[in-house]
Design a protein around this nucleic acid. Sequence first.
DNA 1: CTTTTGACCTGACAGC
DNA 2: TGCTGTCAGGTCAAAA
Length: 275
Amino acid sequence: MPELPEVETTRRGLLPHLKGQKIRALIVREKRLRWLVPDFLPERISGKTVLDIARRGKYLLFDCRDGKESGHLLIHLGMSGSLRILDRPVQPGKHDHVDIVLENGVHIRLTDPRRFGAMLWIDGAVDAHPLLEGLGLEPLSDAFTGDYLFEVSRGKKVPIKQFLMNSHIVTGIGNIYANEALYHAGIHPKRAAGRLSLQRYTRLVQSIRETLNRAIEAGGSSIRDFVGSNGEAGYFQLDYWVYGRDGLPCRRCSAPIHSLRQGQRSSFYCPRCQR
DNA sequence: CTTTTGACCTGACAGC
DNA sequence: TGCTGTCAGGTCAAAA
């Protein structure tokens, strides 16, 4: 499920339910996520109040405080994770690994069949955490510009698709949006990152912004459903121009969409529209 | 240093 | 019905 727009949708959906709320307990049914959920976490987090939720790339960071003590709960949704709000107790299913129980009785439930997600505690400065310190720019920040990508790509021969998916360059762009953004920018996924002009990077940055923002809006339109009971958030409504459309006609020029493998991930592109 | 490959894990689906 | 193989929204760590 989660690329940046889904994580951002989750953040926005959770915030009104969590902001200012005190955590009563943390129920860990399965601690074997990507990394073990720390044994100390339930005790550490109980009694703390969630002041805010931030997002860094695909990481969610709950700002937790309890008078003197403060820290951040880090959550990553991996490939298959989701967070849902339960106003009433619901029997946990097989993959419902953790519940955050609030003083008001609401449960925030982490579900993650593949267990590629993470739940960790960060003491002190968030930016110094090993998982966060090396991250690249936020694609929706003002600092993320064509000039930035142009500069950091000089001399690199990695294909632009993999360059875009490198979180140490820019965070949050997953497989779907890398494909979609490259299509809208008219750039072939195999093009060497170091051989793209400043002009083309400027257009690419614009495409990335538009694609992500449109997806967030699509997710935003169904936040209510997400926060409610059935949990299907979504940018599923977002219509794809190339992703998953292997063999289908390009929606702009009708040429058949091609696919290939890059770094064990599927890429889709229009051989006529993308060079 | 860069680039590639393997690893983690479950579920859905196609084909036999 | 059931087996096997492939693929899926991520990304770290080791190998080359």
